[in-house]
Design a binder for these strands. Structure first.
Lengths: 331, 331
DNA sequence: GTGAAAGCGCTAACAG
DNA sequence: CTGTTAGCGCTTTCAC
């Protein structure tokens, strides 16, 4: 910095001002400083700056599963909103194991991130609470009700109800829900399904499964084996729906003529023409942006009570759902 | 730190040693220090440490497209190898625009990452060269031949040849390549295709396209329109192959009975049962680990010439490729 | 193992 | 705008 100051013929303090983008510097000197910095290959030292400044202008993001494009989209939203407000992201992807997640959080705390946004975390609530003691925390995609932790979720109950409503509107009465087990939000999707089915005087058949492709395949295989295929299936997420789709087609059924299928999440897979799955959409980018906004408010101190945003999902109709067949296909 | 030392009844220097995991501390005192730290909620300050230590123990990773699970897998490999060697990752995902990529690199330099690994970067070579002047750099997935920059790529020419070989072995003689335009490695895939086709005395038909689904759809639509469907299609990546697949099926063709299709990358989409695409596999995690290993060698100073790893791809046979049909289907 | 001193590269506060 | 002083939280070195 001293060298830059010398070369630009100004004081060290002035260089500091320029590097911080202060407005109280004449354009002329500013350019001189920038030129000198360029020539000398000078680059501000982020660590030194955040040490002196006592803030890092960085928010940490912990992505539970980088392979899930759902979270990638949410991260997009966080990033956009963050950079619009001068914050840098410190992404910390995590692979499966819970300990990794704890470590990622610890790492972000050591880096003194000004806030942390968690995407679909599976870690113990206690860990989150402890972290929240030292930094603002927002969580996306997990139903949490903790003091000091902001939350952005979609209304899973409502989403499931949308699916049921859609299918019932098409004349379906025999609908099976392939659930998401212990997955995030799965409990609520199941709940919404059951509630709305009962509301329509229908029997809510639920098959225990998980959030992956194999679960969908197995669930349908089971239905076929017991000769218990419904006229419509509502899967707890898109991945299991794709599995179900495959098994159904493998059984010689045509969608939506013989049977209807609805997924959840509207991931990019659902949108592939080859799949074209009717599904429930969550505004992912927006959810990420909201979470960022929440921690921003905390950083600026404009809010101190926990915030909780429940976002309305939306049904996307594609080619796997249609009117109930007039007669049942032999299974 | 002083507080911790006081509470543990030791010196400040000793606390420092413990926090750095030095082996020259008696277990007894170590535990006392850790306990005190725990009770006081003390956490080492990463910025202060890297300032004093003049190294961050952090390697930066720039991921070109978070939505591409291909890169997510590579990042996995980098992460694994990095944490095995005590390095932390500073992920910096980027969204489409080249400027973002430059900014990401700049940011990592400011954070004094000990090295940078770029995944499928599109940025100008000049930017990379300049960055390489201040820190070791490794690039995955882009054919680069620069002094001071390490590279990990798969042998795209070979991969394309594998595809041709596979199809020719199944009796196909009329094969079209839907190419990847300016995408990473696309030129070489095209080259491999052409070379091997010519080697077999066959005419290499190539259709200009890109690395996305729409390209695949359009390419096939074009072939159909001109009544020029081959018996097999080799797409430059899985995404365009899925587009092609859809359009082919939409045209009433059955795979592989009526026509064969091969993709590239073996992304998770190709593996979905519903898709089950024959494709070319690249060992993604391994490629990431290799790149990390390369910068590690640079950091440790055990190598100074540029390294270049070319990894052999592999054909994964699934259900979209089969023997050439005995008679042509009406198109 | 301790204690002291110096310094990493920057920001902050203030008098001039 | 300059110049100075102080300090962010830690590591490093070195004599003890």
């Amino acid at each position: 910095m001293e060298d830059v100051a010398a070369r630009a013929g100004v004081s060290r303090a002035l260089v500091s001002l320029v590097m911080r983008g202060s407005p109280k510097v004449s354009d002329q000197r500013r350019e001189a400083v920038l030129a000198a910095a360029e020539e000398l290959g000078y680059r501000p030292h982020a660590a030194a700056r955040s040490l002196a400044q006592r803030r890092s202008n960085t928010v940490g993001v912990v992505v539970n599963d980088l392979h899930n494009t759902f979270f990638a989209d949410v991260a997009d939203g966080v990033h956009e909103h963050a950079s619009a407000h001068g914050f840098r992201l410190l992404l910390n992807a995590v692979w499966r194991r819970d300990e990794d997640e704890e470590e990622a959080i610890e790492s972000l705390l050591e880096h003194r991130a000004d806030a942390i946004v968690l995407l679909g975390p599976r870690v113990d609530e206690a860990v989150l609470v402890e972290a929240a003691a030292s930094v603002p925390i927002a969580v996306v995609g997990r139903h949490l009700d903790l003091e000091d932790i902001d939350v952005v979720i979609n209304d899973d109950v409502c989403g499931a109800e949308l699916a049921v409503e859609h299918l019932v509107g098409l004349g379906h009465r025999d609908i099976v829900h392939v659930d998401g087990g212990r997955g995030a939000g799965a409990r609520f999707r199941r709940e919404g399904f059951e509630r709305r089915m009962v509301g329509h005087g229908l029997e809510p058949r639920v098959l225990a499964a998980d959030y992956d492709e194999a679960s969908g395949v197995n669930a349908v295989a089971q239905l076929i084996e017991h000769d218990a295929l419904p006229t419509a299936i509502f899967c707890a997420n898109d991945l299991s729906a794709v599995g179900a789709l495959d098994r159904l087609e493998g059984h010689g059924l045509t969608l939506p003529d013989d049977i209807s299928l609805v997924g959840y999440d509207n991931t990019s897979i659902a949108g592939l023409r080859h799949v074209s799955l009717t599904t429930i959409h969550q505004p992912r980018r927006e959810m990420g942006a909201r979470a960022m906004q929440m921690v921003l408010e905390r950083i600026q101190g404009s809010r101190s009570e926990a915030a909780r945003d429940v976002i309305e999902p939306e049904l996307i109709e594609r080619s796997t759902s249609g009117p109930v067949p007039t007669k049942r296909v032999p299974s």
